[in-house]
Amino acid sequence: MSSLAELQARALKEIREAADLEGLKRVEQVYLGKKGELRQQLGQLSSLPKEERPAFGKAVNDCKLAISEALEERERELQAAELTARLSGEGFDPTEPGQPFETGTLHPISQITEELVDVFQGLGFSWLDGPEVEFEYYNFDALGIPGDHPARESHDTFWLKDGNVLRTHTSPVQIRAMERFGAPLSVIVPGRCFRNETVDASHEHTFYQMEGLMVGRDISVSHLVYTMKTCLREILKRDIEIRLRPGYFPFVEPGFELDVNCPFCGGIGSPDCKNCKVCKQSGWIEMLPCGMVHPDVLRSGGLDPEEWTGFAFGLGLQRLVMVRYGVNDIRDFTGGDLRFLRQFTRV
């Protein structure tokens, strides 16, 4: 019996001293395993007198129970210690960056185009396209800019050998859309345009514009104001003020310039406006030309101006990107220098 007590004491001591779960497993093997000490003790049972056997059997069982309990308890202790150790966070640097992987980018003009398309799609406008090489008729005549009109000169047109032009604006698609879809009509036409200008940091012979056109039974200036305000609020991601002032474009009547309160200083009345170089202290920046579609343009599109009225606008896309991100050289948009393009990581 004394050896059983001694065995239990020894086992409990070793259990207490087990440093980790693996050590504990070994201790368990030594005492409770198939060839463990307790089994060996039980092996002596047959050599004992019959009357002693039940008592001995019980003693061995008690011993086993005690060791098992101790093992479980120690296991819980060790598991808890291990978890605590794992949670210590040693060697963790919260500023260490992750593994980079190859990514691509969309051209910033594609990005702004998509944003605009999404906003206008939400307002029920269709996204259209038109030919980049255009008939003189659609680019000029149908828009009320006949051969000797002074506005033609400001358009610095690229003429092709076949007598066609590289479109100088997206406005020809106004006529094409009316011819194709009739009225009512709400379309936007983002696209590439061309003007024969000398290229420098703020001028390009290739530029991107978005035309907008809404024609309906009673479309008025107040609808234009609402639509422009809604769209610009989405694009500029702020609550905005706009103002319309007279502006002249042959294919609208009345025509307007639309100004937005300056995004850099906040506009008139803000403390920064007095020093603002962007709006030159006026509080406004010129955003886009727009107006009510000229009756002759509606007629060119096959619509009766007595029945239908509409508004149109044109938005310069490079300028929008330049204003938003402070890009200061318009030439960066073309040619594909990845050092420029890879900075536009939004999609």
Binding site: Q121, S126, W127, L128, M214, S222, V225, R243, L244, R245
Partner: peptide
């Protein structure tokens, strides 16, 4: 222009709800 365009209130256009044409290429 004499009335002043900035005195013209904004108004949402009222139109028949219609799915806009989606150009497959674009």
């Amino acid at each position: 222009r004499s009335y002043r365009y900035d005195n013209i209130p904004e108004k949402a256009p009222l139109r028949r709800v219609q799915a806009p044409y989606r150009d497959p290429e674009l």
